[in-house]
Write a protein that binds this DNA or RNA. Structure first.
Lengths: 113, 113
DNA sequence: TTGACATATGCCGATATCGACATATGATTG
DNA sequence: CAATCATATGTCGATATCGGCATATGTCAA
């Protein structure tokens, strides 16, 4: 088995930098493929493929608008990622965290002597 | 160029299901490789490799403890992901979102006739 | 030192990626 | 219909993945 498909998961879909940038651009509103490609300095086929992945995991919607096809954000699918990472929030918020790390560093230092 | 390295990015590192599960297990406290492997039903070398990736992106720390090597969470690196997805929060919170989608569905329906 | 246990690394095969290019499909207008 | 613009798909090459297996490295204890 190789790496999981980019379309298997929202996590996999947003693992790609360019796709993340597309999503950010779409926050400003719907856009056709060509504009996105131009703004991100990628080829049109490249942008189309990224959008296909985003669409297959449900992060993006498309809608015909005359000759064009407008892509729009459907960020609800990003929520699971937000919540999953949120499950670790206490590990970077609590001051216990720092203390814990400090203690562990001490332990390690002592053992590495 | 192929896909970005799993170690290039926290986004890429957590794109893998098993690595996410490792992180969740580590919330309960430090653990040696063997326990993690057993609990997740994967081989020891497999677990070791995943932990290597997690360590290289800074999501995990290790510390020698006698014959064993204990792995612990370092979830701070998860924060950027949480914040990035948080940048889309309004798109799943605002009621405008539903209204907007409704309008767009209408438009599309009209055009597809 | 030797043996036993814990962990890491190396190699393999199968697979999917991403980027580039050419080209096919679709839609609109004259 | 033909021409044109917008977008999607197919193929290729280079690369890295993940899983499994064998094996190397590391650490302790007798």
């Amino acid at each position: 088995m190789a790496r999981a498909a980019t379309t298997s998961d929202v996590f996999n879909a947003i693992a790609e930098q360019q796709r993340r940038e597309i999503l950010v651009l779409l926050r400003a509103g719907e856009r056709p493929v060509t504009e996105l490609a131009q703004e991100l300095r990628m080829t049109q086929p490249g942008a189309s493929k990224h959008l296909r992945v985003l669409r297959e995991v449900g992060l993006v919607r498309d809608r015909k608008a005359g000759k064009q096809r407008l892509y729009g954000l459907n960020a609800r699918e990003l929520r699971p990622v937000h919540e999953w990472t949120g499950g670790f929030e206490r590990f970077w918020n609590e001051s216990l965290d720092r203390l814990d790390r400090y203690v562990q560093d001490l332990k390690q230092a002592r053992q590495e002597k």
